[in-house]
Design a protein around this nucleic acid. Structure first.
Length: 280
DNA sequence: ACGCCCGCCTGTAAGC
DNA sequence: TGCTTACAGGCGGGCG
């Protein structure tokens, strides 16, 4: 399940692979992938002839900037992958839903078995209008947006929510999902159900530090691929951070900090892993 | 404001 | 062995 570190890894891969390439044709093989658009035809018309100028990221969204000021936005959902193909003859794996072919040759393919992912074009804003209104709801990006810990404290204190729910709320902070929320809270020594306005200044600093360092370290190791190996980078390689997990998917195993046992509970319908002894 | 549930999906795995 | 059921979860919407 791609979260911020996996999406950031793919962003860096794309930078070297598709920037300055011109989109010759676009094939939509599953209309659900472009569901924000009135039709696949309209989506194609917005892309064909455009050149990719830069790759950015906002939370879990990839932003492929185009030469007319518009942006190709990609969300990988649960099972989305991007694949680079040398040419059109390379066999397509099942669930290949959209294909960009470049004038210089080569393709970028969007593959997504569970179809929770999506792709859309955010058109260039009119004079004085905000950029990317579709993503206006996103909160700060933990790696891109520098924030003082007291500002973070004020943000936390303005809510009265369980910490895990808040970390996973994309309007609060963008890019954290179920897996990294558990890892961050473990690193901070805080329980998933602690109220966000109950933290001491020391706990706020621990949480902020855990958030930034956990995500940065996962980026360094090119993200996490679990047993299903659902996550693959642009070149089809798995990540290297799953071996570093301290809590997620470690039910019944020993806590590496206190030798207690990692337990699993359901919170908000999602599996939550934590150490009952050293997360307070 | 907050938590929880549902529906959307398919591949995998556990259970009968 | 073969079928059925549960589970994985990002996100938007609804409801209490």
């Amino acid at each position: 399940m791609p979260e911020l570190p996996e999406v950031e890894t793919i962003r860096r891969d794309l930078q070297g692979e598709v920037v300055n390439r011109k989109i010759k044709t676009v094939e939509v093989r599953n209309g659900r992938t472009v569901r924000r658009h009135a039709s696949a035809k309209q989506f194609r018309a917005l892309l064909e002839g455009r050149t990719i100028t830069a790759i950015n990221r906002a939370g879990k969204y990839l932003l492929l900037e185009l030469d007319d000021g518009s942006t190709l936005v990609i969300h990988l959902g649960m099972s989305g992958q991007l694949q680079r193909a040398k040419n059109a003859k390379e066999a397509k794996v099942p669930h290949t839903h959209a294909v960009l072919t470049f004038t210089q040759g080569g393709q970028l393919r969007f593959v997504d078995p569970r179809t929770f992912g999506e792709v859309f074009v955010s058109v260039a804003p009119a004079e004085g209008e905000p950029r990317l209104p579709e993503l206006a709801h996103l909160g700060f990006d933990p790696l891109e947006d520098v924030m003082s810990w007291d500002r973070f404290w004020a943000l936390l204190a303005s809510h009265h929510a369980a910490l895990k729910n808040l970390l996973m709320d994309q309007e609060f902070v963008a890019g954290i999902g179920n897996m990294y929320a558990d890892e961050i809270l473990y690193a901070a020594g805080l329980r998933y159900d602690r109220r966000s306005d109950s933290l001491s200044s020391q706990e706020v600093r621990r949480l902020y530090r855990a958030m930034v360092e956990t995500l940065a370290e996962a980026v360094k190791r090119r993200g996490s691929s679990l047993a299903d190996q659902q996550y693959r980078d642009l070149f089809g390689e798995i990540g290297d951070y799953q071996g570093q997990h301290q809590a997620y998917d470690r039910e019944g195993e020993a806590c590496r900090r206190c030798r207690g046992t990692i337990v699993r509970v359901k919170a908000g319908g999602r599996s939550t892993f934590f150490c009952e002894d050293c997360q307070v």
